[in-house]
């Protein structure tokens, strides 16, 4: 049974507050692309994926890979709220010895599926896992979240080509299409349009959704699961910095932490 949307929305607000506090306390990090992906991760971790926080290496679990590793605050917060790792250490983000490293590091947080941060590599990892799962007859599924700037990396298209060729239908690519990357707007740095058509041309069953609407995300994940013989790509239209007025659509907050005053303001907006 799907979780009530109101419950997921309440969780999303908690996650957004965590993200602001973590990055604000650390004094560095990537708030914009963490906030744009909140609904996607909340839907996956609290509603859709077959996972067990008590048994994080359960062989039949579904897997999630944050290929856009710089958005790790959203992943840490969601995993902590789900019970995979301690909530009371979230504010140690980026500090020496913290399990919450600046980019996801499986050596420090073994319940992660992969160490990521060098862009363009996560989909290959996910497809490798999907192929191994298929060989071993496990029914688990792997979800990989990519950034829209990230797909400028050539390896993404090598992996896209191979995912369709090997018919890896237990892997889903989700593109967080928030239209902003570090240096500015994606269309000014290196246009990725027509994004959905590119994935279709590479042989992926491709859907376009509102990446902040839980019902749409759920429906797309259901459709991906029902799609056999080819992998699915969900192009999730999102807003960079979603939920904090002065961060929304503002390239500055791709990789800049809020000041203490901005943090206070943001937390007030997220009450």
């Amino acid at each position: 049974m799907p979780k009530p949307v109101a419950e997921l929305q309440a969780l999303a607000k908690v996650i957004r507050r965590d993200i602001i506090e973590m990055i604000g306390t650390a004094g560095s990090g990537h708030p914009g692309g963490s906030l744009s992906a909140v609904e996607i991760l909340v839907e996956l971790y609290f509603d859709f994926m077959r996972i067990d926080p008590k048994n994080p290496k359960w062989p039949d679990r579904d897997r999630f890979i944050l290929s856009k590793g710089h958005a790790c605050p959203v992943l840490y917060s969601v995993m902590a709220e789900a019970g995979f790792c301690p909530k009371d250490q979230l504010n140690t983000l980026r500090k020496l010895g913290s399990i919450y490293q600046g980019h996801p590091d499986i050596r420090f947080l073994p319940s992660l599926e992969a160490s990521t941060g060098s862009l363009g590599e996560g989909l290959s990892l996910g497809l490798g896992m999907g192929l191994a799962d298929r060989l071993d007859g496990r029914r688990c599924r792997t979800y990989v979240l990519l950034g829209d700037g990230e797909i400028q990396e050539g390896q993404v298209w090598e992996s896209a080509m191979s995912g369709a060729f090997h018919k890896v239908d237990n892997v889903v690519a989700i593109v967080d299409y928030n239209r902003i990357q570090l240096d500015g707007f994606v269309h000014d740095i290196m246009e990725v349009k027509p994004l959905a058509d590119k994935w279709r041309a590479f042989g992926w069953h491709t859907l376009e959704i509102d990446g902040h609407d839980f019902a749409s995300i759920r429906k797309a994940l259901d459709e991906a699961q029902a799609t056999k013989g080819q992998p699915t790509c969900i192009v999730a239209h999102t807003v960079k910095g979603k939920g904090v007025s002065f961060m929304e659509n503002n390239p500055k907050f791709h990789g800049t932490a809020p000041t203490p005053a901005e943090m206070e303001l943001a937390l007030k907006e997220l009450q």
Binding site: P59, S124, G130, L131, D136, S162
Partner: peptide
């Protein structure tokens, strides 16, 4: 496509191969 090959091999290794 060697980059993709090496990374997919890593994915398979994580999954026990």
């Amino acid at each position: 496509a060697e980059a993709n090959m090496v990374a997919q091999a890593a994915g398979m290794a994580y999954a026990g191969k």
